[in-house]
Design a protein around this nucleic acid. Sequence first.
DNA 1: CGAAAGATAACTGTTGACAGTCTGTAGTCG
DNA 2: CGACTACAGACTGTCAACAGTTATCTTTCG
Lengths: 237, 237
Amino acid sequence: MAETFRLDGVSPIDRSNLTLADRVEARLREQIVQGERPTGSRLNEVEIAADLGVSRGPVREALQRLAHAGLVTLESHRGAFVRRLDLGEVRELFEVRIALECHAAELAAERISDAGLEELVRLQEASMSEMSQGPTPTPFDHLDLHTLIVRESGNGRLQQAVAQVNVELRLPRSRSGATGARAREAVDEHRELIAHLTARDAEGARSAMRRHLTASLHNTMQLLQVAEGHDSEEGSR
Amino acid sequence: MAETFRLDGVSPIDRSNLTLADRVEARLREQIVQGERPTGSRLNEVEIAADLGVSRGPVREALQRLAHAGLVTLESHRGAFVRRLDLGEVRELFEVRIALECHAAELAAERISDAGLEELVRLQEASMSEMSQGPTPTPFDHLDLHTLIVRESGNGRLQQAVAQVNVELRLPRSRSGATGARAREAVDEHRELIAHLTARDAEGARSAMRRHLTASLHNTMQLLQVAEGHDSEEGSR
DNA sequence: CGAAAGATAACTGTTGACAGTCTGTAGTCG
DNA sequence: CGACTACAGACTGTCAACAGTTATCTTTCG
């Protein structure tokens, strides 16, 4: 996700080193996340190639990358499909997220900078004022706090792993309206988490994150269970 | 609901479904892990294609997959290279491994089957007898115990994530002779871990795994530090 | 003699065509 | 009338050639 930053003085600004495959990947990724390409739908290579005015080569490459990103499933000699996660897979993914973010919280408690702590508090206040004064259609702030904590773990690889898991989880979550009602509880849980981080209490931060994400998991599973019920009524397939 | 039942005796095991890209990937993966392809060396598409008697298409696909597996780095318009990990990256990867396996231990304590527990004990005894009676050139048993625990977490996705991290970590570890001296301590740590799992004590299993892997991390870092010293003497690149 | 500039070679990115596989449909036989 | 078979269409897997970029070597100038 994050572009590798090169400091070799060769190229001050990387020209459009973007390959065609890069652009096709970006476009498809956008279409999938936005819901433009429905879950489970087929991704026809020739159609996509014609659509974007390129040949099938770059399209195949893009599909391959999206498959590794977890947004697409590839079936040999059959084609590519927008990935559909069932409840069990969502749970498994969420548990991986818990594993990663709990450890990130632990590391962050030991390594977070003072600037990081300030930013954390600022985010907290922002979300609280938003909460009291109006509608909160922003699961983004929620994610940003988590993103910040993971970043302050000081482990780029961990950050990358979390990002990948979240890309996969974003898919079913965006379908089901996501949070909203739980936001109020989440703010409390965030407050506790921040307190432990400020105190640089690794074990406390871990368990706070654990409680927070476990609650979030249960909430998500409930929402999805309802959504899945609707799906089967509409009779997909 | 009334799906037509297909009994066409196609084939119980359709394994010629292997595409050329699959085979190229497997071959390259083997060469890289075995050290046949030195760390940092270039992977020339045309050379590989000619070598295996295929065209560049499947080779590109294989390289792409290996890049996502972390064994290869791709540089735009420059080529593919066998990945070289520095100490910092190894540490980061290992921390991810810790995050994943600690959570796996926690889950396994809650979910492990009786058969799993028996197998665990069997592994433990096997490694103890090996230890007392001769040389122990087998870090494989060591890994197998971890593999078993992760499997008993009941989370396929977690299992997959651990496997991927270990593929990446195997690379620098195989270079440095790996464990050996630490095997004795490891056995003790394993015993403690198994005790917690048997007692179905999730928190205990987690912290035991945490201690075990942290010790392993420090050991690995020390070994690599020595190995890296040798490398720079030989002056590669 | 060393360094910048230009030409040349090697390699990756991309393309369009060909071949093999799978899916769905029409036809045939019991 | 139902099930098996043969066929046709569509699509993916693979290939060989072309185009653009990067690296290397030679040449030339200070």
